[in-house]
Design a protein around this nucleic acid. Structure first.
Length: 427
RNA sequence: GGACAGGUGGGUGAGUGGUUGAAACCGCCGGUCUCGAAAACCGGUAUACCGGCAACGGUAUCGAGGGUUCGAAUCCCUCCCUGUCCGCCA
């Protein structure tokens, strides 16, 4: 959530920050916020004045009654004032909820470093690894997976619908191995605390990280219990410290979680849906960091690197892309995507998004820290990065590791986790 | 799912309609004492919003949201959560 006082204080700054998102709707919301805020403040002033009067009069009432003095028409007079106050308080509540609703719908201010423009303006900042030269035509992962019995997409569809993959045999073993490999790396070498969060979250939690109220259509919802399936572990993990005032000494907090993710992918039907490219359920290891504001710039670089190391250990060529304003997610101030090279489909695939949210999520979720003992609490900054998402990593592993004989060579780092250096057809 | 008991400040925990934003203790910060520390003693110590350069003033907050009342931590309603027992169950 953006800071309404900052908007009030410098509307032009807010306008400029939002303009870079190429989001006309957000701009209109901002104007509405300014208007609502001004009117709310008027009503608030009046309500507080009336309440002060009432409190004073009620104290007098109590004093007189205790002293056995004459009350006269004081009670009737106060009752009339109370009715007037009640009306105004209702107005105030209305303004409060309207203002909040609009504020919740406004995206985060962009980092000045995010390129101007839409997705076409995304900026590649570095590349790692060299795409392999093939002496045969590399095949797409869905052919390799089906042939080696790693996954069975038709039967997965039968169980739940298209986009719900069924991994089988060594494919299932590969998923398990990837989970352990990534968790071990982040816990042992990068210093993260391993957590295993709930896979369903309530509306408050989903609002804390920015999925609600604007993106409800992207979530699977369990209506009966008013819960949502998590679209990413970012949601429960970032909210672990919601509503808390943290001791500065515990910062930065670094947590890693391995969870399934559920996404309705509303509006993206028919786009990049072959094989495992875009699915409704997938596994992911997620990194979350909570830090002091002055650290978030360095933390963003750090968390991005932590995700990159995963890809490097897996010997997968990738590039880092800083998203342009028009392509940056709602809650993010700046996002670095890690894109894997997939020779079978001849394209780059986003396997990780590393974002800094500045205080946007911290405001929504109420994540604060006390800079010094006795000092006023401040909002923390939050960051997260996939470290990394499984399906596209599996795509890259299969397509980059495929051999002329149809088998797939696995990177050394994975051998102890999967128990083999080569995936072959199980006859 | 049923029954009962509860949810108060960083922690423990008083408080059942009128200077209670809230006793007391612990913790924390500052001071006295000490070569230094501990102990003891003294003082301070919630959060948010509004107004103000500030000092400060006002308002709200005792799980959440409504209601009753001149006035609610205290009474009523709904919801959430925790504990105990029963039921069911991996």
């Amino acid at each position: 959530m953006i800071d309404v006082r900052q908007v009030r204080h410098d509307p032009e700054l807010a306008r400029r920050a939002l303009a870079r998102r190429r989001d006309d709707g957000a701009m209109a919301q901002l104007d509405r916020v300014l208007e609502l805020d001004a009117r709310r403040l008027e009503v608030l002033g009046e309500v507080e004045r009336l309440r002060a009067e009432r409190n004073e009069a009620s104290r007098e009432f109590g004093r007189r009654k205790q002293a056995g003095e004459e009350l006269g028409d004081l009670q009737a007079d106060l009752a009339a004032r109370a009715a007037r106050l009640k009306d105004l308080e209702e107005d105030l509540r209305e303004f409060d909820s309207l203002l909040e609703a609009h504020l919740l719908a406004i995206p985060n201010f962009l980092h000045e470093d995010a390129p101007e423009g839409d997705a076409a303006a995304n900026r590649e900042v570095r590349r790692w690894g060299t795409p392999r030269q093939f002496d045969f035509a590399p095949r797409p992962h869905w052919e390799i997976g089906a042939e080696l019995g790693l996954f069975d997409l038709p039967r997965g569809s039968r169980l739940a619908g298209s986009g719900f993959p069924l991994f089988t045999g060594m494919g299932a073993r590969l998923v398990r191995g990837l989970a352990n490999f990534m968790l071990d790396l982040h816990v042992r070498e990068h210093g993260y605390l391993e957590v295993q969060p709930p896979y369903l979250v309530n509306a408050t939690t989903a609002r804390g990280t920015g999925q609600l109220p604007k993106f409800e259509d992207d979530l699977y919802r369990v209506e009966r219990d008013e819960l949502y399936l998590l679209p990413t572990a970012e949601v429960p993990v970032t909210n672990i410290h919601a509503g808390e005032i943290l001791d500065a000494a515990v910062l930065p907090i670094a947590m890693v979680a391995y969870t399934p993710c559920f996404r309705r992918e509303a509006g993206s039907h028919g786009k990049d849906t072959r094989g495992l490219i875009r699915v409704h359920q997938f596994d992911k290891v997620e990194l979350v960091r909570i830090c002091r504001p002055e650290e978030s710039e360095a933390e963003h670089e750090r968390i991005t690197r932590h995700a990159e190391v995963v890809l490097e250990r897996l010997e997968l060529p990738y590039r880092v892309v800083t998203l342009a304003g028009g392509d940056t997610g709602f809650a993010s101030a700046r996002t670095h995507d890690l894109e894997l090279w997939a020779p079978g489909i001849d394209g780059w695939l986003e396997a990780s998004s590393a974002s800094t949210f500045t205080d946007f999520q911290a405001r929504r979720a109420g994540i604060r820290f006390r800079p010094e003992p006795g000092a006023k609490p401040e909002f923390a900054h939050t960051l997260n990065a996939s470290g990394v998402a499984f399906p596209r990593t599996i795509i890259a592993l299969l397509e980059n590791g495929q051999q002329a004989d149809g088998s797939v060579r696995l990177p050394d780092a994975l051998v102890p986790y999967v128990g083999t250096d080569r995936l072959v057809a199980s006859t």
